[in-house]
C-alpha cells in the first residue's frame, strides 16, 4: 500500500474518511506518506493554529469545546488535535479527550483527532505538525492543538503553534512554580479556569507578577478568567486569542514564525535522518562493536570513545565518498 491517488482525490473532495485515512498514513509513517505531504503542500491555506496547554485537570478539554463552539458559530471550519500520553512500556494509550466535545462533534465543519504522544519514541512534534498540515489542507480555518504541557516533547508541539494559550486553575502558589518549566515563558494568553474557586485572585496576582518579570516578551500577555463548565469568559478568551493573532499579522511575525517553524522542522527531520543513518551503520559495524565493548568493560571512557567513533564515522561516511569521486 503506497500512494493512492484516488484517496487523495477523495480528500480534495472533502471526504472526512479520506482525511482520516491520510492522517493515519502520515502519522504512522506508512509507505508513501511523504508523497501525500508533498501533494498537500500547495494546498496549504495557512490555517490559524492555537495551542492549548496546561496541567491535567484544569479543564482544557471543556474550554476547547466552548472555544470551538464560538469559532464554529463565527462561521469557521475548526479542527482539534488532542495529544494524550502513551504508556512508555507498552506503547498503548487511552485517549479520552473526545469525551468533552458533546454536540459540536456532529457539526459538519468540526473535525477532532486524537494523537498519542508515542512515549519515548519521539516524533510527537513532527506527527502533530503533520496532522495540522493535513487539516489545514483539508480546509480548516482554525486548528486547536491540545497537549498536557509536561515534558519537552509537548513543549515542542506547542512551539509549533501560532498562539499559545496556557490554562491554569486556582490553587496553591506551588502550582505556578511547578509549571515554570518552559510553559509560562511561551504562553501568549493565559486562562485561569474554574475561576469561581478559592484562590483565583491570588493566582491572578502571582501570574501577573511572573509575567512582568519576563523581559523577553514584547507582546502584552493577556490573562482571562474563565469558567468552562458554565461557559463564562469564553468570548473574552476568544478576543484575547484573536488579538494576539492580529498582533502577529500586523507585525509580520506570523509569517516569520511560520517560516522559522518550517525550517526548524526540516532541521529536526534531517537530524533524525542523519542519526538514523549513522545508527543503522553502527548496528553491525565491527569497529563500533569493539569501541562499545571497551566502554562497557570500563577500558575506555565515553568521551575518548566518542572522539574515536567520530573519526571513524567521518572516514566511513564522508571521506570514502570523496575518495570515490577522486578516483573518478
Amino acid at each position: 500500500m503506497s500512494f493512492d491517488a484516488a484517496l487523495l482525490g477523495k480528500f480534495i473532495n472533502g471526504e472526512k474518511r479520506a482525511c482520516a485515512r491520510i492522517i493515519s498514513i502520515v502519522e504512522n509513517r506508512r509507505k508513501g506518506f511523504e508523497e501525500y505531504l508533498k501533494q498537500l503542500q500547495p494546498r496549504a491555506r495557512g490555517a490559524y493554529v492555537i495551542g492549548i496547554t496546561g496541567p491535567p485537570g484544569v479543564g482544557k478539554s471543556t474550554l476547547i469545546n466552548r472555544l470551538a463552539a464560538e469559532l464554529l458559530k463565527d462561521g469557521n471550519s475548526v479542527g482539534v488535535v488532542a495529544v494524550d500520553p502513551s504508556s512508555p512500556f507498552t506503547g498503548g494509550a487511552v485517549l479520552g479527550d473526545r469525551i468533552r466535545m458533546g454536540e459540536i462533534s456532529m457539526n459538519s465543519r468540526f473535525y477532532f483527532r486524537s494523537l498519542s504522544s508515542r512515549g519515548n519514541l519521539g516524533g510527537l512534534s513532527e506527527a502533530a505538525s503533520d496532522v495540522v498540515r493535513i487539516l489545514d489542507a483539508f480546509g480548516k480555518d482554525v486548528i486547536i492543538v491540545e497537549t498536557v504541557g509536561t515534558g519537552q516533547n509537548e513543549v515542542d508541539v506547542i512551539e509549533s503553534c501560532d498562539t499559545v494559550v496556557v490554562v491554569l486553575m486556582p490553587g496553591t502558589g506551588d502550582d505556578i512554580q511547578a509549571q515554570k518549566a518552559g510553559i509560562l515563558e511561551i504562553g501568549n494568553v493565559f486562562a485561569i479556569n474554574k475561576s469561581d474557586r478559592d484562590g483565583a485572585e491570588r493566582t491572578l496576582r502571582e501570574l501577573q507578577t511572573m509575567l512582568h518579570m519576563n523581559p523577553m516578551s514584547e507582546y502584552e500577555t493577556r490573562i482571562v478568567m474563565t469558567k468552562s463548565n458554565i461557559g463564562e469568559g469564553i468570548s473574552d478568551l476568544k478576543d484575547a486569542i484573536l488579538s494576539h493573532r492580529d498582533y502577529l499579522n500586523g507585525t509580520g511575525k506570523m509569517a516569520e514564525k511560520r517560516s522559522a517553524r518550517n525550517v526548524n522542522e526540516m532541521t529536526r527531520l534531517i537530524r533524525a535522518k542523519i542519526i538514523g543513518k549513522v545508527e543503522s551503520l553502527m548496528d553491525s559495524d565491527r569497529e563500533y562493536m569493539k569501541i562499545e565493548g571497551d566502554v562497557r568493560g570500563g577500558r575506555l571512557d565515553p568521551h575518548s570513545a566518542s572522539a574515536r567513533l567520530l573519526e571513524y564515522i567521518d572516514d566511513k561516511l564522508f571521506v570514502s565518498k570523496s575518495k570515490g569521486e577522486r578516483n573518478g
Binding site: 507498552t90 498503548g92 494509550a93 485517549l95 479520552g96 469525551i99 468533552r100 456532529m106 486524537s114
Partner: peptide, 20 residues
C-alpha cells in the same frame, strides 16, 4: 487491557448517540 496490549484506545465517554 487494550492499552496494556499496546493498542491505542479512543474512549468515547458515556451517553453517546450512534451518530457520534
Amino acid at each position: 487491557a487494550f492499552r496494556d496490549a499496546g493498542f491505542e484506545v479512543i474512549y468515547t465517554g458515556l451517553r453517546q448517540t450512534p451518530e457520534q
